[in-house]
Design a protein around this nucleic acid. Structure first.
Length: 563
RNA sequence: GCGCCCGUAGCUCAGAUGGAUAGAGUAUUGGUUUCCGAAGCCAAGGGUCGUGGGUUCGACUCCCGCCGGGCGCGCCA
């Protein structure tokens, strides 16, 4: 009898993969290059797992795949997991798992609880995720909201996969846009309205500018996550206005993020890169590396050596640095801080900076890998209400703010909708759908599944902890099998969503899991007379509740017990 | 002109690393509660997967061309 490697906890999938590997060994000389992929067939007729390994081997072995498949089946070690194996189609090997092995997932989940689905693949290595990174020139808008939702879910996924995550927010607090902000606040403080010709031409025209001006004149104090400032109220001191405006808007953004249940570990300021000499050090390092040259009174970086389509100016004719120099300095700092893995979540409108930042880092010649940092870019968001695109917000003056969305549809629905689509796809945010407290709304559909289970358990009133001892053999119906199948896929889902940096996979999974639960609920009564059967069924839905809760946790969406 | 993303059911979108009969929600139609929450369930109809080639035993998936949409292409950030 083949001995299970008990030193590791194996999923059914991993276990069957091991069995196949064992059976394949006599057929091939080197199994190290083999990629044994087990998939879950769509049709139950094709078993619980299927492997295409025989078809992969057909060419190198120069044999009929069905013959190879038979050889593999003959070589499978005896075990108690597989109840039946079949060859199908061109050479698929279909595995049917014994009922007992399928049922085991329920106890696994009940034992692991909130740890179910987590793994240690990240080995507690540090990873830094930079996201939102909005400049303090106005409220956060829907686009930032998408970045916030996706970025925060990525962090939760990484943590669930054993990474040590640092959430970081970077902003420019000193550039031309901030000057513009300062002028706008000054103008409002002087009573100049945006409609007045004297108002700064490129000034910010949203109502929030007037709020800042008013607070400044009232000598208010503001506290943001990373700073505290009290206004002097004097209009002569432009620098004081700037500092106050920045702090005020940082505070506003903190409120937005807090309403969205997102907390950052580190705030980084562009100005600090200058005052601490990091920009200058980076420039000197680039010059020393020999990848720069002077031309037209400007200093250039030969980014074309690293895949860019043209070289980039570092120091302008007038003397200042272009924006990408502090960007490179900032990322050099990330590297120096020990983050061998960094992920930047940004809007797709910034994609052109990727090549430049990476080129600058390569030019430093300090051993930074070519694909570092990683990027997740999200596409634009369109907001719809009543079948029409919403473009304006009175408060912001131009765009739909995150806070408007949260106030109108709630934190849970906003997070779900912004994270439930692939970041690569443009997103249509339908306010009517998101705020609907009906079956139209997938958020409620999932939360309802959770609440339903809670309700049943409440009515039962028994000791949930004792369900771990329940005997599970009654769980054999189609609905029960389908539900257990969904549950057993959760750990793979957590791993692959993290690998693909794709939080939306979690959202889609949860919808399917909720669907399996609702089907089961309507198919089967749980609180039946037979104590044996009742215990088994309650164990299954309790396990489902755990997975729903864990999965919603990855999205940052609540799992209510009542709705 | 160049680069990145997208094009799948009327609408909004899934189909990671190529697999068997392309899925879900919504909308439409028809069923379903003396019984744990009907915010539910079951079923029907609805598709040349933008298009034309190529690679492969096998392509929604990979490669090339074309069409359509979005976003970028500054000594702005």
């Amino acid at each position: 009898m083949w001995v299970l490697p008990l030193s590791r906890i194996l999923t059914l999938k991993q276990l069957i993969t091991e069995l196949i590997l064992h059976a394949v060994q006599p057929l091939v000389e080197d199994t190290s290059s083999l990629n044994i992929v087990l998939e879950r067939p769509k049709s139950a007729d094709h078993g619980d797992f299927a492997s295409n390994i025989a078809m992969q081997l057909a060419k190198p072995l120069k044999q009929n795949p069905r013959v190879i498949a038979q050889q593999i089946i003959d070589g499978l070690p005896a075990n108690q997991v597989i109840s039946k194996v079949e060859i199908a189609g061109a050479g698929f090997i279909n595995f049917f798992v014994s009922a007992h092995s399928k049922q085991a997932i329920v106890h696994t989940i009940l034992r692991a609880g909130e740890d179910f689905g987590r793994n240690t693949s990240g080995q507690q290595q540090p990873v830094q995720v930079e996201f939102v990174s909005a400049n303090p020139t106005g409220p956060l808008h829907v686009g930032h909201g998408r970045g916030a939702a996706v970025g925060d879910c990525l962090c939760r996924l990484l943590a669930a996969n054993g990474w040590r995550v640092t959430r970081e927010f970077y902003y420019n607090d000193a550039g031309a846009q901030i000057d513009n902000l300062t002028k706008s606040v000054l103008a409002r403080a002087q009573g100049i309205l945006p409609s007045d010709p004297a108002f700064p031409e490129d000034g910010y025209r949203g109502d929030y500018i007037a709020d800042i001006a008013e607070a400044y004149l009232a000598k208010a104090s503001v506290t943001a996550d990373d700073m505290q400032v009290t206004a002097s109220g004097t209009l002569e001191d432009v620098d004081a206005i700037r500092k106050f405006a920045v702090a005020y808007l940082r505070h506003e953004q903190d409120l937005d993020l807090q309403a969205f249940q997102i907390k950052f570990d580190v705030f980084s300021l562009e100005s600090a890169l200058y005052t601490e000499g990091k920009v200058e050090q980076t420039v000197q390092a680039l010059i020393a590396s020999g990848h720069t040259y002077e031309q037209d009174n400007a200093l250039w970086l030969r980014t074309t050596d690293f895949g860019d389509d043209k070289d980039r100016v570092m120091r302008k004719k007038e003397g200042g640095y272009t924006y990408f120099v502090p960007d490179v300095a900032y990322h050099r700092e990330k590297w120096n801080r020990g983050f061998s893995r960094v992920i930047n979540e940004q809007g797709a409108d910034h994609h052109s900076t990727i090549t430049r930042v990476r080129a600058g880092l390569q030019a430093l010649d300090v051993g930074i890998p070519q694909g570092w940092p990683e990027y997740v870019l999200h596409q634009m968001v369109t907001v719809m209400r009543g079948g029409e695109e919403v473009k304006l917000s009175k408060r912001a003056g131009s765009y739909v703010t995150l806070r408007d969305l949260i106030e109108e549809v709630g934190c849970d629905a906003t997070r779900y909708f912004l994270a439930a689509r692939s970041p690569d796809s443009q997103l249509v945010f339908d306010i009517d759908l998101a705020r609907a407290q009906t079956n139209d709304n997938p958020v409620y559909y999932i939360q309802y599944a959770h609440a339903r289970i809670c309700s049943v358990l409440h009515q039962w009133g028994g000791d949930i902890a004792r369900l771990q001892q329940a005997e599970l053999s009654p769980l054999t119906s189609a609905a029960e099998t389908a539900l257990m199948q969904m549950l057993s896929q959760y750990p793979e889902l957590v791993a692959s969503a993290c690998q693909a940096l794709a939080p939306h996979m979690v959202a889609n999974y949860l919808k399917e899991l909720a669907s399996a639960l609702h089907s089961y609920y309507n198919d089967t009564k749980f609180l039946v007379e037979d104590a044996h059967v009742k215990q088994a069924r309650l164990s299954l839905i309790t396990a489902t509740r755990t997975v729903l809760r864990n999965g919603l946790g990855l999205l940052g969406v609540s799992a209510p017990e009542k709705m």
